[in-house]
Design a protein around this nucleic acid. Structure first.
Lengths: 220, 220, 220, 220
DNA sequence: TATGAATGAGCTTTCATTCAT
DNA sequence: AATGAATGAAAGCTCATTCAT
């Protein structure tokens, strides 16, 4: 599990590095400590002193690299959203659509499982986002700006394909998207935060797909 | 809208009153101010000074009635959950099950719509719960303790009925409950917080029911 | 000398009391400490911790009574300017004008000596004003607003009288006022700050009056 | 006006250059930025970061060239005082005394106007001196050391001459010097800082000279 | 010469809370 | 029941300065 977290942090660091090139060693330590503190205690309950202590760094060092505590949060979350979540969603959508060859269920399945893997990879960050989304307006706007458009677009394109294939009832895409997001988020929160334990992701995803497919399939 | 909020606060006050009888006038003012502040800014971003100012009361008055800030939060949320959410769910479940006469869809529909009305009635409180659920451990435990058991029980009983009626596939009830909660919460957050505006609740609920019913209906 | 400072502080406290009624004992201590610190080290070089320590009070106490450090400064300076400097100037001008019975020199002499006594009485405050006047815009504006108008008015009225008496050359009053202020301030700064010691105020004031009235040229 | 400031900075730079020969380009930038910042915000309200940003230079560069912030201030002010103010005063005094040929008024007039021009040429620096004189002990001592003696000497010599010429009443020179400085400074502050605008320097200086020479009493 | 990185000490201000009245 | 006064602890942040490169 520690390994998972370490690798999650490594992945987040890579995303930030890709944004701003080489990174001072202490800055890296700050980011690592901040991710852990924010994820464990939430943003408000994390003090800059906590982060500094955990990073083994002077408090002032935090502010030299990130002007404010809020900026530190954003600089951790934004690159992952912008450079990983979004591009991955777009690229993936193309690939999976191709692979699925008109099979909507297969398409959604691939996306669900891959996004689940993504969320696991960036687990601490996902936790931060879930905790702050309703309370932190900047973060909410950033996420809506990046994610809103892309998700809608991808969802719409893909749905168009499959709708044309005659497999599916006629639906407003945004409603369908909302359902999928709700089910996905509900499952993720449950299996990861509320009742962590042994979950059979494939079985659960398949069950959700049954729900969705029979729910939205054209009646014969 | 202000009327809605006023009536929501009145309803919350009633729930608290039902718990502890007559309430000192300044205490009432504190509760009112606290609900608004917590809902607007979140728990952490609300200072006791803010609450006192908004209530037109000395800061010390808050602490005469509620020993800590956290206790104030809990005393606002708990009675509503304990005295309104839970009993209503239980009672309702019985009534609706009776009325539905074996029609699972009608049963869920009644519950969805009535819970939507409930959430609207207590809108600021719902917002507080959504914001704090993942961040505030006390609140999460309290909610899980009260709601978890009841929801599971109600859901299970009702589902048992309807399952016996042969209408529905065989499902683990907790999974079905999770789906319904996910869809419900997803819709509520969207229509109330993310994209408030004109939503046709009945149509949306019916669509969700289509999804659920065709999704889980036994294939013929 | 300590006695002088004590009495100066007492006088300043009285002015503040007259503005805002009864004063909490620790608040009074804060004001006393702040006056001394500001006068001794200047505003910027005085930390709120210094004031708190000197007052034997928690730092937070300062901010409970005065929201900001700057507000503390203004609340010390403003009442004295507004309630003592200004009214005194106005009242005095009337009295002295009467007493002088058309003798401009006697009039100015009385004012100079009385203002010198005033400045001594409020010595620490005068020092604060001199130090901050050019650097602190709020303070400068406040002083200009209160003092500017009154001084000009008083000076103009008095000068009108004496000019009519035929004693004095025709002069723009503001220029004459500026000269008098320059000479007065120059003398005060010199005898109080730059070269404190034994000064014969009456002799110096008389010499200034000679200068003003007759200049330095030998009479032919 | 920007031209004036630019030329003022150029003049100050020249004075520093004269002290220490060739100057590294970034050092020059630091000096320029520091003068502007100190004059605009005062010494305390100017951070080294502000200076560095304005100069387009790293903060550390400031400290490579000037060991402390205070040293930077002094290195800006001192050369102008030492190499320009003082020598000019001394030289000028000789020249003007010669030119005035025993006419004290003409002598003072020449000095007043030339010093006014000097103050304008070094306007930002003069502002810095006025702001810091009472608050910064080092600066005050430096100024007193350089200026005090010279002014007294020049004033005394000149006054001796003119007193011998029988033109002037017998006066303690320091008192006369103080009056002239007070009037001069009072005029400068007024016309430059408090009420900038169109001032007729020659007329104002002549009026001051009238005051000094003949006072304001009507000649009989 | 010039700087990016780092920091210890200190800043003003805010916080939830206590207590005497 | 209600509060004005007071506070210890801690918050986020800034400062002038150092140092390795």
């Amino acid at each position: 599990m520690d390994n998972n977290i370490d690798s999650a942090i490594g992945a987040i660091l890579d995303a930030i590095l890709a944004e701003e090139g080489r990174m001072a060693p202490k800055k890296r330590l700050v980011v690592e400590a901040a991710i852990l503190c924010f994820a464990e205690h939430g943003y408000d309950a994390t003090s800059t002193r906590m982060i500094a202590d955990r990073a083994g760094v002077a408090e002032a060092t935090i502010f030299r690299h990130f002007n404010t505590k809020k900026a530190l949060l954003m600089r951790i979350v934004e690159p992952v959203v912008k450079r990983l979540l979004i591009p991955a969603v777009e690229e993936e959508a193309g690939v999976f659509r191709e692979q699925a060859k008109g099979d909507y269920r297969a398409f959604i399945r691939a996306i669900f499982l891959s996004r689940l893997a993504f969320a696991d990879r960036y687990a601490p960050l996902i936790r931060i986002i879930l905790q702050e989304y309703l309370v932190n307006e900047d973060l909410r706007q950033m996420l809506n700006a990046y994610a809103g458009g892309v998700l809608a677009k991808v969802s719409q394109e893909a749905f168009g394909d499959f709708f044309a294939s005659g497999e599916i009832k006629d639906f407003p895409t945004d409603r369908l998207l909302r359902w999928k997001l709700s089910l996905f988020a509900g499952y993720y929160i449950n299996r990861t935060i509320l009742a962590p334990g042994d979950w059979d992701d494939e079985a659960e995803v398949d069950a959700m797909l049954d729900l969705i497919m029979y729910g939205i399939a054209k009646e014969k």
